[in-house]
C-alpha cells in the first residue's frame, strides 16, 4: 500500500527553501526531501516515501523489535531480518547476549512452523 523504505542520510543540503538529502538505501542512493524532518542529521536513519522522509527511525526501538523477533528463531530469521538489521546495526551491533539467551528455534532449513 505505501512503500516506505529505511535509509541512512549521507548528505544534506539546503536547496532553495527545501532541505534535501541524499539517502543511502543499502547501496542505492536517492534524493529525498527533508522538509518534514527538520531535525534530521547526517547519519540518521529515515523512512522515505515518494521522495519525502516521513519518519526518523528510533534505533533503540528497532533493536527491541529485532530482539523479540530473534527470540522466535535466532538463526533462521537473520536473513529475513536483513533490512531491519540494516536500520539498527551500524551504531548498535547485535548484542550476542540476546541470541545466546534465546531458546533454541527450529533448524533454519525447516523454517518457522
Amino acid at each position: 500500500m505505501c512503500l516506505g523504505i529505511p535509509g541512512k542520510v549521507v548528505e544534506i543540503r539546503d536547496d532553495g527553501p527545501l532541505r534535501m538529502a541524499r539517502v543511502d538505501f543499502g547501496g542505492v542512493r536517492k534524493e529525498a526531501c527533508l522538509a518534514y524532518l527538520p531535525e534530521v542529521q547526517l547519519g540518521d536513519y529515515v523512512i522515505v516515501h515518494v521522495g519525502f522522509a516521513i519518519s526518523q527511525l528510533d534505533e533503540e526501538e528497532a533493536m527491541k523489535t529485532l530482539e523479540i523477533l530473534r527470540m522466535l528463531d535466532p538463526e533462521g530469521m537473520d536473513m529475513e531480518l536483513g533490512s531491519m538489521v540494516e536500520e539498527a546495526a551500524p551504531k548498535a551491533p547485535r548484542p550476542p547476549a540476546a541470541a545466546e539467551a534465546a531458546p533454541a528455534g527450529p533448524p533454519p532449513a525447516s523454517g518457522p512452523a
Binding site: G4, P6, A35, Y36, L37, P38, I47, F52, I54, S55, L57, D58, E59, E61, A62, K64, T65, E87, A88
Partner: peptide, 15 residues
C-alpha cells in the same frame, strides 16, 4: 515503534 510516534509527523500534518 521504531518508526511511528503517537502524534505522527506534525510538520507534515501542518502542510
Amino acid at each position: 515503534a521504531r518508526a511511528v510516534k503517537r502524534e505522527g509527523n506534525l510538520q507534515a500534518q501542518k502542510t
